[in-house]
Design a protein around this nucleic acid. Structure first.
Length: 371
DNA sequence: GAGACGTGGAT
DNA sequence: TATCCAAGTCT
């Protein structure tokens, strides 16, 4: 192991032993504080924040978190809710399987754990939607368990600190880095130490150890950082996998009805239980223009009005959405339409809609509007 | 184990 | 514009 043979900062085990105490002290005077989910140790609130924050930036979650809590203030309320209600509050946050698992998890906690979350990371990880990192975060924040998270921040911070050469696109090196993360934990920490340490890992990654142009001058552990010593911070973390997007065209049939009282309604269908936007409400989707027209009764087809295409990119897909607007004179028209249901403009807020669909429909919510 | 799964922000 | 990525998990 050449990594332990160098003269820079390694201890007997090749790890910077001052790391944990430096990080804890730094977090307490320079870390983030006052975020809504930092004001509590209540497992329900911590759990909700951790799930919302999976692959999602703090700035995005800030608006969703209080709204969700106001509607579902505790785990029993959430467990008793309908899947549609949960999805409506998650609408726009993305990764909707999180919402489904969140709901299932609440039901498991209520039905199998008497309404109280398990207290150890090992038990938490058995619950739906709670993986190793989220389980560790909840256990560390709420109960001071001596266990490490491993999110994107930690991968970046630790891979630089240790000049970790393993390819984090692969499972083996990931596990190895997690073992190292465990080895770096404070020795015999108090509960509050684990809170500060765990928060400190994330704060350091989010505010100092930035992806490009890290602010090493402000880093509390730069003296122990091997990447910094070698002037190679930009080389870590090592990750080879490149995400590739597939291009796809989707044709959306936007059927609109304006009632005699001016009430505007759209014809929406629930997406299948798997795949993109699973469980959300969406206008009927077709693979091409012809398939869309074939699904509309011939007496209605002439009224189709093509709107401007919308580009929408997902992690693995580059969608080009082609909306076609069909104004129908009567709700009785549904016989000539693909499966779906009428949803009034007012009721859209109570439905889980994909972000681009909500955007699209919001421009059509006035009688006659086409933008 | 590799790919599926959203959205918005940063570069 | 293209690419990466952000408090990952599930299959």
């Amino acid at each position: 192991m050449s990594r332990t043979a160098g003269s820079q900062a390694p201890t007997g085990w090749g790890l910077p032993i001052a790391f944990a105490s430096l990080l804890i002290e730094w977090q307490r005077h320079s870390g983030r504080s006052g975020l809504p989910w930092q004001l509590t140790r209540e497992p329900y609130r911590v759990w909700l924040s951790e799930v919302m924050l999976q692959q999602t930036q703090v700035s995005t979650v800030l608006s969703y978190y209080p709204r969700f809590l106001a509607r579902f203030p505790d785990v029993r309320t959430l467990a008793a809710a309908s899947p549609d209600d949960v999805m409506a509050l998650w609408s726009g946050l993305g990764y909707y399987s999180r919402a489904r698992n969140l709901h299932r998890c609440a039901q498991v906690v209520v039905n199998e754990h008497g309404g109280a979350f398990p207290t150890t990371a090992a038990q938490l990880e058995t619950l739906p939607g709670i993986g190793a990192s989220t389980a560790a975060a909840i256990a560390a924040f709420c109960h001071g368990e001596r266990i490490s998270i491993l999110d994107g921040n930690v991968r970046r911070v630790l891979s630089r600190l240790l000049a970790f050469e393993g390819d984090l696109a692969q499972a083996g090196p990931q596990r190895e880095l997690w073992r190292l993360a465990q080895a770096l934990l404070p020795v015999a920490p108090e509960r509050d130490d684990m809170t500060a340490y765990t928060q400190g890992l994330m704060d350091l990654g989010a505010t100092v150890c930035l992806r490009s142009k890290p602010l090493c001058g402000r880093c509390p552990v730069r003296a122990e950082c091997r990447a910094h010593a070698a002037n190679e911070t930009q080389r870590f973390p090592v990750k080879t996998r490149r995400l590739q997007r597939r291009f796809e065209n989707w044709w959306l049939l936007l059927v609109r009805h304006v009632g005699g009282d001016g009430q505007v309604r759209f014809w929406l269908a629930r997406r299948p239980d798997s795949g993109i936007w699973a469980g959300l409400y969406c206008p009927p989707v077709f693979a091409d223009d012809k398939a869309l027209q074939a699904a509309v009764h011939s007496t209605l087809g002439g009224a189709l009005h093509a709107l401007a295409p919308v580009a929408h990119s997902l992690t693995h897909r580059e969608l080009r959405l082609h909306p076609l607007l069909l104004d129908v004179p009567s709700v009785a028209t549904e016989d000539g339409l693909p499966p779906g249901q009428w949803v009034s403009v007012q009721a859209l807020a109570d439905h889980g809609l994909p972000a681009p669909v909500r955007q699209m429909l919001s421009g059509l919510d006035q009688p006659g509007s086409t933008a």
